[in-house]
Amino acid sequence: MADTEPFDDVLPKALQRRSPAPLVDIGANLTHASFAHDLESVLNRARAANVTALIVTGTDREHAEQAIELARRHPELHATAGVHPHDASGWNADLEAAMRELHRQPEVVAVGECGLDFNRNFSTPAEQERAFEAQLGLAVECGKPLFVHERDAGRRLHEMLRAWRDDISDAVVHCFTADRATLHGYLDLDLHIGLTGWICDERRGHHLRDLVSDIPLNRLMVETDCPYLLPRHLPAKLKGRRHEPALLPWIVQEIAHWYGIEETELAQATTATARAFFRLTGNVVPDRIRHPAQEEE
Rank of each mutant, 00 (worst) to 15 (best):
F118E: 13
I215N: 00
R17G: 01
L138M: 15
N283C: 06
R203Y: 09
N50P: 13
V56E: 10
L43P: 01
K13E: 14
P145E: 10
Q128M: 10
L11N: 07
A28C: 11
A98L: 08
R288A: 01
I255K: 06
L247C: 03
K237T: 13
L220R: 00
L195T: 04
S41P: 00
P12F: 12
F277V: 06
L15Y: 10
R204C: 02
R130M: 15
A46K: 00
D287V: 03
L238H: 08
L229D: 00
V140T: 12
A171E: 07
D201W: 05
E101D: 09
R47T: 07
E101G: 03
W164C: 11
A67G: 10
L136A: 13
A267G: 02
I68M: 12
E263S: 02
I168L: 06
G112W: 15
A64E: 14
R155E: 15
A236Q: 11
N283S: 12
E244R: 12
P12G: 11
A110Q: 10
I26S: 06
S41A: 04
S34Q: 14
I199L: 11
E296F: 13
R219T: 10
T264M: 09
R47P: 07
R100M: 09
F176W: 06
P20H: 04
A236N: 10
D9N: 14
V252P: 14
P245V: 00
D210P: 02
A28R: 09
V212T: 09
A36R: 07
H174F: 11
A272W: 04
R209S: 02
R17A: 04
M1S: 01
W164T: 07
Q128K: 08
I289L: 10
L23K: 00
L138I: 10
C114P: 09
T273I: 09
E76T: 00
G205D: 06
A98C: 05
D152S: 14
L146Q: 07
K239H: 13
F35H: 04
T4Y: 04
D25L: 03
R209A: 01
A274N: 01
F122I: 13
M160N: 09
A293G: 03
A93L: 12
A98S: 11
L234A: 00
N218V: 13
T177M: 04
T52F: 02
A93Y: 08
D188W: 05
M160Y: 07
